[in-house]
Design a protein around this nucleic acid. Structure first.
Length: 200
DNA sequence: TATACGATCACCT
DNA sequence: GGTGATCGTATAC
């Protein structure tokens, strides 16, 4: 049995969101409750890079909703959309500068993707699906990502290896067409060899 | 107080 | 590829 993977420290998150978005690929998101631990390797992320970024919630100003994005790095920003979905972000950069990385897809600890409709395995491709699969809701908003319930470990490579070992691609973010030129920026990143990403 | 809309998903054709 | 579900926010009145 291998040694347990080390948790990513707060300093990992205290960098520009674009750097963190790439560095999070291949890392392991871990959800631990009282009885069980579930985890998956992060294979798709999106960066939201500050008040100038019209696709970032914080571009509309500092509100109760976006408050945690203005706080220190290394905490979860969980928001509710479309009346039924939660999405998980990691707050990045420095305190007072609102930026975050949306976790869009995980590669679960399973042999292969099951596309058959009979499967009971919760899917983890899609930001809302992975929150449902890992039982992440609003109570995690503002909670540390270096705590006990929810954290991210080094995963497939050493903590200080900033580049994933697997091939990375980038492209425009999903669902932000309203954001003008910001919508076209390639702030979405994924591992091209994973079948668990949102896109094809 | 009221209203419009969204960082989505599932199911239909 | 089109659309309905469903409700927290922000913004306007």
């Amino acid at each position: 049995m291998a040694l347990p993977e080390s948790k990513l420290p707060v300093e990992f998150y205290a960098r520009p969101a674009l750097d963190v978005a790439v560095d999070l690929l291949g890392r392991r998101l871990v959800r631990a409750d009282g009885t069980a631990t579930h985890s998956g390797v992060i294979v798709e992320t999106e960066a939201y890079v500050g008040p100038e970024d019209l696709a970032c919630h914080a571009a509309r100003g500092r509100t109760r909703r976006t408050e945690v994005m203005f706080g220190p790095a290394g905490v979860a920003y969980v928001y509710f959309v479309y009346g039924m979905h939660y999405c998980l972000n990691a707050v990045t950069d420095r305190e007072g500068f609102p930026a975050a990385v949306l976790i869009r897809a995980l590669e679960p600890n399973l042999p292969a993707p099951s596309t058959s409709s009979g499967s009971t395995t919760p899917r983890t491709d899609g930001p809302a699906r992975l929150c449902q699969a890992l039982d992440i809701d609003r109570t995690f908003n503002g909670e540390s990502l270096t705590g006990e319930r929810l954290y991210i470990t080094a995963g497939e490579r050493p903590v200080d290896a900033p580049a994933p070992r697997r091939p990375v691609a980038s492209g425009p973010r999903i669902g932000v067409a309203y954001a003008g030129e910001w919508a076209e920026r390639p702030y979405r990143f994924w591992l091209t060899d994973s079948v668990w990403t949102t896109r094809r």
